[in-house]
């Protein structure tokens, strides 16, 4: 079976500086694929290109067998590729429920004409039922992270792009979110997961791609990555410097 997503020789220059150089990898359907690397490695750029908010300088992206290299973000969402933002971007003056409703309507569509029940279900699923009618601006950081995820899930992605959903969360909150990701995958959604937190990556991913200075350093299952000297140098070297 062909991979759900394949990225080939993707390159992106910003004002002459290469943010990504010749990055290639594949994501199989049903996987949770981790994307790690030190700060400035190009993770979010890669993410934005796949999600259609930035277009690459060269290279191709194939999704479900179709070339989608230069699609727009709303096209990506409708085809089933949706992202979350590292820094949450709720529609601040709208309620939590309305935020999710938009995802439901403009993504791959609600299951039936009435969206009330479906929105409630999504909100309960991520633990936001109690704040459904509060303006999004009034939510705490953890809840805003959940909303970010809920809104994206409402678009019913086949490929979910998660950008650091764990940063800024407490240990308990993080475990809840990771559980949630596993459940989402359990329902057949493929996940590409950018994360700084190594423990989160190691405990959820089937496959990990490591970026460093815009290039792919290596890839493989988490255990192999954890013991790869090159990764340890790039990653732990940085941690030691911290």
């Amino acid at each position: 079976m062909p991979p759900l997503l394949s990225v080939e020789r993707l390159t992106k220059y910003f004002a002459g500086l290469a943010a990504l150089k010749d990055v290639s990898f594949e994501v199989e359907e049903g996987q949770i694929c981790g994307l790690i690397g030190p700060n400035g490695a190009g993770k979010t750029t890669l993410f934005s290109i796949i999600a259609g908010s930035v277009s690459p300088s060269s290279g191709t992206i194939t999704y479900s067998g179709k070339d989608v290299t230069r699609w727009k973000s709303f096209q990506a969402v409708r085809a089933g590729v949706a992202r979350t933002h590292q820094i949450t971007r709720p529609f601040r003056s709208m309620t939590t429920r309305q935020n999710v409703e938009i995802g439901l309507h403009f993504g791959r569509g609600p299951a039936s004409g009435s969206t009330w029940g479906e929105v409630a279900e999504i909100l309960e699923g991520v633990g936001l039922g109690r704040v459904a009618d509060r303006p999004a601006a009034s939510l705490c950081v953890g809840d805003q992270k959940r909303l970010e995820l809920a809104r994206t899930l409402a678009a019913k992605p086949k490929l979910l792009l998660c950008d650091e959903v764990c940063s800024g969360l407490t240990e308990t909150e993080m475990n809840e979110v990771l559980d949630l990701l596993r459940r989402i995958r359990g329902r057949g959604t493929t996940i590409l997961y950018v994360e700084h937190n190594m423990r989160a990556i190691m405990s959820t991913c089937d496959q990990v791609v490591v970026l460093n200075f815009g290039e792919k350093l290596t890839e493989g299952p988490p255990l192999k990555i954890q013991n790869d000297p090159a990764v340890i140098e790039a990653y732990l070297g940085k941690t030691a410097a911290d």
């Binding site: 709303f74 949706a82 309305q98 995802g103 403009f106």
Partner: peptide, 19 residues
């Protein structure tokens, strides 16, 4: 709803499917 989303954050609106 989509218009309000555009008002609040155009890019985030595009990221959940609004053109």
């Amino acid at each position: 709803l989509s218009l309000q989303a555009v008002r609040e954050d155009e890019e985030a609106a595009a990221d959940i499917g609004v053109n």
